[in-house]
Computed example of a mutant assay.
Amino acid sequence: MPPNRDRFHGTPLPLFRPDGDEAIPDGPALRAGRVPSYLADHRARLRERFMAGGAEAMPDYELLELVLFRAIPRQDAKPLARRLIETFGDFARVLAAPPARLSAVTGAGPAVVTELKIVAAAAQRMARGRVLQRPVLSSWDALLDYCHTALSHAGTEEFRVLFLDRKNVLIADEAQGRGTVDHVPVYPREILRRALELGASALILVHNHPSGDPTPSEADIEMTHRILTGAEVMGIAIHDHLVIGAGREVSFRREGLL
C-alpha cells in the first residue's frame, strides 16, 4: 500500500475562497498569488477613468467594481458588481442593503460585505461632518443631504431626532426607534427626557418612508403633535419634522403641519 501522502498528492485547489467570496478561476498567475495581466489592465483603466472624470463619468456597476477591488483582489469584480446592482437597483441601495441580504447574493462573502459597509459608513460620516457642530438652520441643504444619505435607502422605518442647542447648533443625532417597512414605535416621553439630558433647546424630527413616498400619514401627524405638545410645556422648540423618501422629502413646517 503506498504511503498516505500519495493519497492527497492530487488534491485539487479549492474552488472557493475561505471567506466565502466568489470562486477563483484556476491558472498559473492566480496559483502564484498574482493578478492576471488582463485583470490588472482592466482595473488600471477603470482607476484612470475615475481619476480623470470622477464618479459622474462611470455607471453604477463600474463604481461598484472599484469598491470591490480591495475585497476580491485576484478576480474579475464585474460579474458580482452587476449582480449586486441587479438585485438592489442602484449603487446607493447596494451600500444601504442589510448584511444578510448582501450575503445572499452569489459571490458576496464576508470580505465583500465588510467593504461595502465601510464605504457606507464613510459616506454617512462625511455627510454628518458637514452639519455637526454647525448652525443647522443656516446649512439646511447640508442637513437634507445628510438625512437622505442616512435614511433614504433604508429598508425599514427609522425615527431619528436631531438635538440642537440655543444657537441651533447640532449637538447630537440619535435614533429613537427602528421598525418595519411601514411602522416605527416612537415614544414622545423618551424623546423629551433625552432632550433634557442633553440640554437641548430645539429638536428636528426625522424619519423615512421605505416605500419612497414621503407623504406624511395620519399617524405621523398625530405623533408629531404629541411630541410638540410635550415640548411646548418644557420650553423646547420643534423646528421641523422631515419625512425622507426616494430622492425627495416632506417638511412639516413647509407644509403647514407644524
Rank of each mutant, 00 (worst) to 15 (best):
A195M: 05
E62I: 03
A237E: 14
P110A: 15
P98G: 11
G54M: 00
V184T: 02
R248M: 04
E56G: 09
A81V: 06
A55C: 00
L13Y: 09
E56S: 11
Y187V: 12
M58N: 14
A97G: 09
K117G: 02
G107D: 00
V250M: 03
H9W: 14
V169A: 10
I85Y: 10
A231R: 00
R166P: 03
V113C: 05
G27D: 05
R189V: 05
E65Y: 02
A40G: 10
A108N: 05
G129A: 12
E56R: 10
P12S: 10
A52V: 11
H183Q: 11
P185N: 04
L46V: 03
P28I: 09
S139F: 03
P214V: 08
P99W: 01
G109K: 08
R254L: 14
L116Y: 07
D76E: 14
Y38P: 10
R34K: 10
A111D: 08
E157S: 12
D165Y: 05
H241W: 06
C147I: 02
R31P: 02
I24W: 13
A52Q: 15
V131Q: 04
Q133F: 06
A246I: 00
D182K: 11
R101F: 04
R17F: 06
Q176P: 02
A237W: 03
V186E: 01
R47Q: 13
E190F: 13
T156C: 06
M223H: 13
F50T: 01
I244W: 02
R226L: 12
L258Q: 01
R82P: 03
A77D: 01
A202Q: 06
D240I: 00
R254A: 15
G199D: 03
V181E: 13
M223E: 12
N4R: 13
G53Y: 03
I171V: 13
L258N: 00
E158P: 00
R160S: 10
R45N: 13
L68I: 09
A44Y: 07
L30G: 11
M223T: 15
R130P: 02
